[in-house]
Design a protein around this nucleic acid. Sequence first.
DNA 1: CAGGATTGTGAAACCGGTTACAGAAAGGGG
DNA 2: CCCCTTTCTGTAACCGGTTTCACAATCCTG
Lengths: 344, 344
Amino acid sequence: MTTIREVAKKAGVSVATVSRVINQNGYVKDSTFEKVQEAIKELNYRPSAIAVSLNNKKTKTIGLILPDITNPFFPELAKAVEEVANNYGYTMILCNSSGTVKNEIDQIELLQSKYVDGIILASDSFVEKDYKDVNLPMVLLDRGANPKNSSIRVNNFYGGVLATEHLLEQGCIKIAHLAGPKHVFTGQQRLEGYRSVVESMKWFDEKLVAYANYQLDDAITATKELLNKNKGIDGIFAGNDLMAIGCIKAIHSFGLSVPEDIAVIGFDGISLTNMIIPELSTIKQPIYEMGKEATNQIIKEIEGNHKESRDIEFDVTLIQRESTNRKRRPGLEDGATFKDNGNR
Amino acid sequence: MTTIREVAKKAGVSVATVSRVINQNGYVKDSTFEKVQEAIKELNYRPSAIAVSLNNKKTKTIGLILPDITNPFFPELAKAVEEVANNYGYTMILCNSSGTVKNEIDQIELLQSKYVDGIILASDSFVEKDYKDVNLPMVLLDRGANPKNSSIRVNNFYGGVLATEHLLEQGCIKIAHLAGPKHVFTGQQRLEGYRSVVESMKWFDEKLVAYANYQLDDAITATKELLNKNKGIDGIFAGNDLMAIGCIKAIHSFGLSVPEDIAVIGFDGISLTNMIIPELSTIKQPIYEMGKEATNQIIKEIEGNHKESRDIEFDVTLIQRESTNRKRRPGLEDGATFKDNGNR
DNA sequence: CAGGATTGTGAAACCGGTTACAGAAAGGGG
DNA sequence: CCCCTTTCTGTAACCGGTTTCACAATCCTG
């Protein structure tokens, strides 16, 4: 690798001048500028990002910590972060925390010692007391608010309301909720949304709430149990899309069908939802937007002099698809399956 | 941030001694060692990774370049890379190339100037002449071989054979192939595998091969076209799982069902395949293993003195699920749908 | 044309570590 | 007790840039 001193020698100037040419600051005579540029080109010189970082204490790198990149919610987020970061000349280090607080803390330590300029923490545990000595910009995604850090999230409570009311509108008269883990912020909020709608209804019963860990397999087990313990369930609001898919699989395993026997709605709006059959109704979060905004915010905090932290709440939207479509279109027999009649 | 000099002052020793304590090399008297350790603890000192890197020209960072993290094949790969890298004390920078060669080259340049120690290039374009002046370890994933770099891949040709033969065994008598993009290595190989099995058959016709870009939407369009142009197709081998899902959706839109009317098999073995209904048969690649091995190899090349590059080929396996299950179980009417009879 | 402002350039300190080297202290053998 | 190892520690150079400061050259103005 060529160094700035070699360039200086070749161009017959000092390293200071070369540095000025590279950063286009300070006074440099036109003819000198040319000479240096030429030397740079000839030697195929690129300044060492490390040496630069050692001076200005910026690495142009941000860390993204998330529970598990294989959870379909996160790739879209990661993509947004990476793209926006790249646009601003930053690169992104990705860390899977597996959702445990210990890993999260380790990852934060590691990122700090690698001198990332900021961290986006998209993990979901509640704990925050342990991050006390993180003194670099950090934005929180999908977590409880915190006076010190900016946070990005959606109105999970309202989403829960929306999902539940949608099932009611579709004529469901006994609606269960498959909630996310108890210690997870988003899961709690969505559950509260559901509860606020149904708790006054006469059919409501605490047994209609089950918990699972936001994963498919766990959701299948939990749904089977739910259906065994309760008679007459005709709608399920699942805490996320992955679990909604688990619901559907469990329902099918009982010989029932979706949405005819039981309508199912998820939460998140991952792209998976329109890949499965039946296509899944869901409460959509603007995932890409959230990642984009988180990245904008972290970069603003890194580069801005004033570090005003902000709380940004995005809206969720109901996406209605087949899995909750119980009001059949006129002209179709009840129970018939929809078909696009292609052009064959 | 505290520096090594502050620690030295606090412990009443020189920076050299502190450095010796940190790296546990050289001679240090026990009592001095203790003193220094104590000072380190008290000041909560962590050496700057940047300063260290400046000396030894290692950043303990590897870059992973892939076409698109939202393609479900890649998160699993990324996870493997990240986990193994972490185990060895490395962190991972993630880059989406969007599959274009220009971006790839830009990303490689960027990673080089950030002094990553090695790169895993999991992208799929053919071009390699442009990487001539990459002089740091690089392993190629799912690409054509290259004498200079190690490569990891599966036997895509054999996978194509396996998929096609499986459809034949299931009684299909006119099998189409929805191939990946023409310029992509894996797509070509899989197509060749298919072709080798069917080209001698009397029903074979070039019109049974369609191309799409490995994406869902594109696959839907291509499949519709395929079905319009050919009569009597009863089996489709899709170049990857995402396209297989597109196939199924297209088939449904024609009012046909899978696997009764048309059997469908994919390629990759992403976890999505057992989420959809019907569950998708596929040719499974050991994705996690591949990522793990790629990372092991890159670290070996980084840390090892000898840089023997290796070509590693993994085996693919046929996973049979509902989407190709045309040999009904005894006792079930033809055309009936399978149901687990839960315990309700 | 004198003298201040502006422009152009280089030497050297600095960022925060590692390490070669040299010298001091302690230990061991004759 | 002297001398030679071995153990211990500090000084200073170095990694590859940026930046301050001082000084030189040029320009402008009265």
